[in-house]
């Protein structure tokens, strides 16, 4: 069981402790299990043989050169991409199984995208309320209350009625994070959440993610933010050419990489 990071380590205004406490499936030790995952796009084999276990409350940061399959692996977990082979279990349910209720499973797996993907035709508040109303059959008052509460935690309650296009990139991404949290997920997937942001906005998004990690959320984060990986990750995964080449605690992977490919990559970016 990985140690929960202390809240005091981060300069945070709010915390997501109560959200994570409300999580279901408390007793499941391994939140995500990936075994022999393969994925090809036509003739291009992107994932060759991926094996990974993510424990409850663990923050796993995935790094690697572009084209190494990081995002594809993440998108296979909630089946935005259909795996070509292997198995994926989330909360002991086989996501790749024939009978899986995929929509029900996805309610439990929040995802944050590189391009934010806030619904352009809906206000910030409606963005957050949509899925709870549609999937959880929450009452309108309840959904609104939850949404406003979440917005307050990220300091954007005054933007509730704004449209996504009126927000900065950093604000949009923070809203995207709480939109996923509104479904009270057990697991959060982050697909390069800061790559499309102007440099001065990266910090505000990372801070929200740090709070979430501190609250004990199970997170898989694909990112190029090595500082974040070092500070927040329980485990760093280095991917290259469709394989997990190296994994371990951040300080081991960053300060004492074993594999040549990891060394080359770290030399390029650090």
């Amino acid at each position: 069981m990985p140690t929960k990071k202390q809240n005091e380590n981060f300069e945070t205004e709010a915390s997501f402790n109560d959200i994570v406490e409300k999580n279901k499936n408390e007793n499941i030790e391994n939140k995500v299990v990936i075994s022999h995952l393969k994925k090809s796009f036509g003739k291009l084999e992107v994932l060759k043989d991926i094996n990974l276990e993510v424990k409850k409350g663990e923050v796993v940061v995935v790094i690697g050169p572009s084209g190494s399959g990081k995002s594809t692996m993440l998108r296979c977990i909630n089946r935005l991409e259909e795996p070509t082979g292997g198995k994926i279990f989330v909360d002991n349910v086989e996501m790749t199984g024939k009978k899986v209720k995929i929509n029900k499973q996805r309610e439990n797996i929040g995802m944050v995208f590189q391009q934010f993907n806030l619904f352009a035709n809906k206000s910030v508040l409606d963005n957050i309320m949509l899925a709870p109303l549609d999937r959880k059959k929450m009452s309108k008052d309840e959904a609104r209350k939850t949404a406003l509460d979440l917005l307050k935690r990220i300091g954007l309650e005054d933007k509730a009625n704004a449209f996504p296009s009126e927000l900065s990139g950093g604000q949009q991404q923070r809203v995207a994070i709480v939109r996923a949290l509104a479904m009270n997920p057990d697991i959060m997937l982050f697909d390069e959440p800061t790559s499309a942001l102007d440099p001065e906005m990266v910090g505000e998004v990372l801070n929200v993610m740090k709070e979430l990690a501190a609250a004990g959320m199970t997170m898989i984060v694909v990112t190029h933010e090595m500082g974040f990986a070092r500070e927040v990750a329980d485990r760093v995964i280095f991917m290259s050419d469709g394989y997990i080449v190296e994994e371990g605690a951040p300080k081991d992977v960053f300060d004492n990489p074993q594999e040549q490919r990891t060394k080359d990559f770290l030399n390029c970016i650090l």
Partner: peptide, 9 residues
Amino acid sequence: EAARSLGMT
């Protein structure tokens, strides 16, 4: 994709 990831049909 964002809508599907939230569990929408």
